[in-house]
């Protein structure tokens, strides 16, 4: 199986629970795909092809109106199924069924948002820790996902536990705690790392883990000579 097929059929962490807030949209990249990630005002998360079928405008610039996403350019409305429901230039027109945006699989678990291209795998994604894992921080990495794994092993002492998942037990707030690093592949020169901490929602520990992540980021910057 080629690398691309493996990535295409896999779940990827694309951010923490607050990567996109209710009523907001943002852009997410995975190998070979650009995705509009958005939440309805009620909080349901959706991952779509990042392109309005009308004139190619990125839907990540769109405006959430209730449970619909409106394109920034001409205001076309899409419902949660990706179906176009309203074209403002023709307010009395019933948009045809063929006017729809392609969707990708999403899953929320352990304070993470997961995306898989297309329908996604039948199994849910693996856990991001063993004891109430919670999201701390995401940071962009200026190299591809395979290099990222090498760098995180070398600089953070992390060990692989599953594809694109690594763990490390640094000292966080006075004791050693399990930190899970989820690597999101983007392309050959870019990836992202999403950091999760075991031990439940304790603000002090989370703040310490965020600072540990920031410290690791500056270390990566200085040792690899890459921009943050």
């Amino acid at each position: 199986m080629s690398m691309r097929q493996t990535e295409a059929s896999a779940w990827h962490v694309v951010g923490g629970w607050n990567h996109v807030q209710p009523g907001a949209a943002c852009r997410v990249e995975l190998p070979g795909a650009e995705i509009a990630l958005w939440r309805t005002e009620a909080g349901a998360v959706h991952a779509w092809d990042n392109r309005c079928p009308h004139r190619g405008m990125r839907l990540s610039f769109g405006i959430v109106k209730g449970d619909r996403l409106a394109c920034r350019y001409h205001g076309w409305h899409y419902d949660e199924g990706g179906q176009c429901r309203f074209i403002p230039a023709h307010p009395n027109l019933d948009p045809p069924d063929t006017l729809a945006v392609a969707q990708h699989a999403t899953h929320e678990q352990d304070e993470a948002i997961w995306v898989a291209l297309g329908a996604g795998p039948t199994e849910p994604p693996p856990p991001l820790g063993t004891d109430q894992p919670g999201f701390c921080r995401s940071i962009p990495l200026p190299f591809g996902a395979d290099t990222a794994a090498d760098v995180l092993m070398r600089l953070a002492g992390a060990s692989p536990v599953a594809p694109r998942l690594m763990q490390v037990r640094p000292e966080i707030g006075g004791s050693n705690r399990t930190v899970t690093l989820a690597v999101q592949p983007i392309d050959e020169t870019r990836a992202a790392m999403h950091v999760f901490l075991d031990g439940g929602p304790k603000a002090d520990a989370r703040l310490a883990a965020i600072r540990w992540t920031v410290g690791l980021r500056w270390q990566i910057t200085s040792e690899t000579g890459a921009a943050a």
């Binding site: 079928p53 004139r55 230039a89």
Partner: peptide
């Protein structure tokens, strides 16, 4: 085919 216009276009 790549982009879908309406009468306004």
């Amino acid at each position: 085919g790549m982009e879908i216009p309406t009468r306004a276009d």
